[in-house]
């Protein structure tokens, strides 16, 4: 079961750890206060980056096809909802203020991502309704000077010609944005 890449060195793990920590604080998020736990997850992210070419959630099985896995690239599309409901994201890299302060204990979190078949059904349904939605958006957008883009990870909205290269709040790439209005 050997892999054809070199294991991330501890310096590389530390570098990404401090960057994620800085980005999290800047956007109003918190990393899990258990540093060893976070180091383990950060190493997993680096392994997945080598393995798949993107930082898939270390606690989920990535397909290896980026377009199918956009929702589970860290930070994932489910982070904020899980933090609100359970105090942490699925892998517990990010935690709520209550967990951070020790007021709330972490427990096992159920998977919010739909099972593969249901995900596919939802994708087909979305594609089918995209045209209708597109027409609706066009009608509203006609009255706006610019379209509005929504970050699917943190909900950040901005009005501009296209989505930003990087979300200024949660730092995900522009491929994680959807046309909102």
């Amino acid at each position: 079961m050997a892999e054809d890449f070199i294991e991330p060195a501890s310096e590389e793990v530390d570098r990404l750890f401090s960057r994620l920590d800085k980005d999290a604080k800047q956007g109003g998020y918190n990393l899990n206060p258990d540093a060893d736990f976070v180091r383990g997850l950060v190493k997993g992210l680096l392994i997945n980056e080598r393995r798949y070419g993107y930082r898939a959630c270390p606690c989920r099985l990535a397909s290896g096809v980026k377009a199918e896995d956009l929702d589970l690239i860290c930070p994932c599309d489910y982070r904020d909802a899980d933090m609100t409901e359970f105090g942490a994201c699925y892998c517990a890299l990010y935690v709520s203020k209550a967990v951070m302060k020790g007021d709330q204990e972490l427990s096992s979190i159920p998977e919010r991502r739909l099972p593969p078949e249901e995900r596919e059904r939802l994708r087909q349904k979305q594609n089918a309704s995209a045209e209708v939605l597109g027409a609706d958006i066009a009608e509203v957008a006609f009255k706006l000077s610019l379209p509005v883009w929504r970050c699917t990870v943190c909900g950040y909205l901005c009005a501009r010609e296209g989505p930003p290269e990087v979300c200024p709040i949660c730092k995900v790439g522009k491929e994680r944005f959807e046309r909102f209005i």
Binding site: G44, N48, C59, L61, C91
Partner: peptide, 25 residues
């Protein structure tokens, strides 16, 4: 999963309980 910390903790729990088990990544 080899990258998952919860999986690692589950493995450690089983080991600490001293039961025989099989695992696969």
């Amino acid at each position: 999963l080899s990258t998952c910390i919860w999986c690692k903790k589950t493995r450690e729990l089983l080991s600490s309980m001293g039961v025989a088990f099989d695992y696969i990544y």
